[in-house]
Design a protein around this nucleic acid. Structure first.
Lengths: 195, 195
DNA sequence: TTTAAATGTTAGTGATCACTAACAGCGAGA
DNA sequence: TCTCGCTGTTAGTGATCACTAACATTTAAA
């Protein structure tokens, strides 16, 4: 774990909590364990956060990312299907990977579903933006007319499946690299949807 | 929960354990809770299974499905891409849905990864069969030449993502039905890969 | 009816959990 | 130097956990 010495105790505890909870689940790790991993006493944990749940909430507040997708759709789209899908796909995997541990934590404990919204609200937003993107591309006759919403969710589920597979079974299932997958899947969309 | 009265105590306990563990995780449910849900005393649980972990292992042994995909590839393939992908996709979702609770249980507890192999060994098998299917279709000139393995994993991840999304966030994320998704995604493969 | 196996009841084990009280050591700013 | 806020240590709370011992009760086959 090795939470660096340059951090203050609060941050050491937050990072240790994220690591351990992502590995063993919220219920699977004790406050004593977290404090030990952070290199502080258990009392410091309670003095700083009051309760185990507060600690997790503080961690989610502090170390979770969102809103970048919006920027990409607003500024980086060039209205070329291959280019745009690659950009969106790469951004998606980057964001999901940064939120990896958070996703694992809320995944493992049903009672934490209140936090799930925070760490997983973007999918809905992404689906809307992607649907609008496909619709616009169709209006510009750059894509054949299809159910834009279904295409959007297909693209998302494809990448979500890839991410979750790597997340849960750790690389081992296939010899296909993420790079190959991205190229192949985008080529699939391009061949199928361009006139 | 309402585990029927016609079952013997062993099966009542197995079903209650599966339900509760899928909902609250292995650690999230107590033996007392499981016994109560099964309508028997806690002692009956320990007399039948010895330990909580034995109970889960017995449940996985008894109520998990696999091997059907093999039969489909051996007997039901007609070498028409749309027909075959629809069949495979539907079978995939049926199998995953039947194993739904098992998947949730092992998902939520890292220490149960020993059981994960049992309930998730088919993906690797499926990927092989699907890759061989695409290769054969290419040799028959029914598909354009592409990276068959990448196509196979793309098809699987697409459906895995759809399944996991429904499993974890319960229908709510999109208005696209499973039926629409299947049609749209298979049409995607057909348009992209047929000459 | 007798008998034996399965089950229920009760009360308890020791371990672990989240969390607290009380006090002592410490370093930095005054 | 004094003080104050942060920290560590120790010892503990009461709750819950998986699991057990001992005995009473039910059930069904013989």
């Amino acid at each position: 774990m090795e939470t660096s010495d340059t951090l203050n105790n609060r941050d050491k505890l937050l990072l240790a909590a994220i690591d351990l909870m992502a590995e063993k689940g919220y219920k699977g790790v004790s406050t004593k364990e977290i404090a030990a991993a952070a290199g502080v006493s258990e009392m410091t944990l309670f003095r700083n956060f009051g309760s185990k749940l507060n600690l997790l909430e503080a961690a989610v507040d502090r170390y979770h990312y969102s809103g970048e997708m919006q920027m990409i759709f607003n500024e980086k789209i060039v209205w070329d299907l291959r280019t745009d899908l690659l950009l969106i796909g790469q951004a998606y995997h980057e964001i999901m990977n940064r939120n990896r541990k958070m996703i694992l934590i809320v995944l493992k404990d049903h009672e934490l579903s209140g936090l799930r919204d925070k760490s997983q609200k973007h999918p809905r937003q992404l689906q809307e933006m992607l649907t609008n993107y496909f619709k616009t591309m169709q209006q510009q006759s750059k894509l054949i007319p299809t159910n834009a919403e279904a295409q959007a969710i297909t693209f998302m589920w494809m990448n979500y499946g890839a991410f979750m597979s790597k997340l849960l079974s750790g690389e081992s299932i296939t010899s296909v690299t993420m790079q190959e997958f991205m190229e192949s899947s985008i080529e699939l969309f391009a061949r199928a949807l361009t006139p």
